[in-house]
Design a binder for these strands. Sequence first.
DNA 1: ATAAACATACCGAACATTCTCTCTGCCCAG
DNA 2: CTGGGCAGAGAGAATGTTCGGTATGTTTAT
Lengths: 198, 198
Amino acid sequence: MGTKSRIMETTFKLVLKKGFTDVSLNKIIKASNTTTGGFYHHFNSKDALLLEVIEKYIFNYFNSTIEQIRSFKGTPKEKLQTVMLSIVAECVNINEISSKKVYYRNLHLLLMEGVQKYDVIAESYKKFYHNLLNFIKEVVDEGVAQDMIRQDIDSHELAIFVQTSILGTVIMWVGMPEMPLEKRMISNIDHLWAYMKK
Amino acid sequence: MGTKSRIMETTFKLVLKKGFTDVSLNKIIKASNTTTGGFYHHFNSKDALLLEVIEKYIFNYFNSTIEQIRSFKGTPKEKLQTVMLSIVAECVNINEISSKKVYYRNLHLLLMEGVQKYDVIAESYKKFYHNLLNFIKEVVDEGVAQDMIRQDIDSHELAIFVQTSILGTVIMWVGMPEMPLEKRMISNIDHLWAYMKK
DNA sequence: ATAAACATACCGAACATTCTCTCTGCCCAG
DNA sequence: CTGGGCAGAGAGAATGTTCGGTATGTTTAT
């Protein structure tokens, strides 16, 4: 593994635990087994590194996940469940090689810190939300076409309601991590479905 | 106004804009019209100040708001709407005196940073969530007793679903601030109510 | 009543760290 | 000989905190 990607993966692990600002460049450099010169050969600044890391390990991952689910075969409810699981999951492996797990609670908190600090991240965050919303709307429209979802509600409005519930589940879990996540997730999806189904 | 509360209010305003770590003690001290010595007379450290500020301006406020709504007269739907509005509101005045407005988007982002950094804040955050959940459950139970809310769903589970939707509305708005907040809020409440009403 | 002792609120220079980032130089493949 | 990749010393600025000092008001002792 090259120095650059080693720095990026190490950084991701570190900031997940401590947040952006509490991880110094020195720590990153030492943990990445490189030096100041090595670092500044690959990145213009600490901020530049952070932006690249977030883009690669969070947004690329989330967006490609949506892309994958798009091609899934399954009922609308299954698709909603899958996309919710991909966002609300307890933890997941960073990549195929490393067995290091990413805890999503930290991931969402990190994302919020990024949104607060960097306009670029806020922008990517917004784009991801729109991407997700479009996907949900597709699923809803598909469900309406298949006569599985009621059509007396505007699909865009319904999609917003669904996404609200999905993201709310994330935040509930961030605030009350002691409640069993999976159970609540399924319960929420069940209620949602009971409301929107034909 | 005493020096201590002047420091606290100034700090709250500053960190709302920039976040905890991007506001230095020097800035706080200068903006508060005091000195290093004056500051350390009232607070043991910067962290201690931040914790006090969050406790006073966020959690005390939120929890007392819930307490106020508890004594309101109104239909269950109106109560849910009111509590949602008090959490999702666009902005609000810090206190009765100052006309300075607090933008809730920043407030929620700040809260997340606090949850990420300080266990004490995460703990207060959790307590607030439980407080809110209890309140919602009370409203639901009351609605069931009045025969306005369906009773075939466990009230605790339904309360979680409602709270999920409320908090989801917050987060949707943080991510997509360009969407009209009030409209979406009402739409979400309407859907929720349509599902839970008898 | 007056002086001494104490407490509170605040000042501000100085301190030790830590931070990000620059710069020079070495190594080695092409 | 050239240039990408990296090493590492160190500059320069900013950070949170300490500490001796001052001004003012309050209690206590003679």
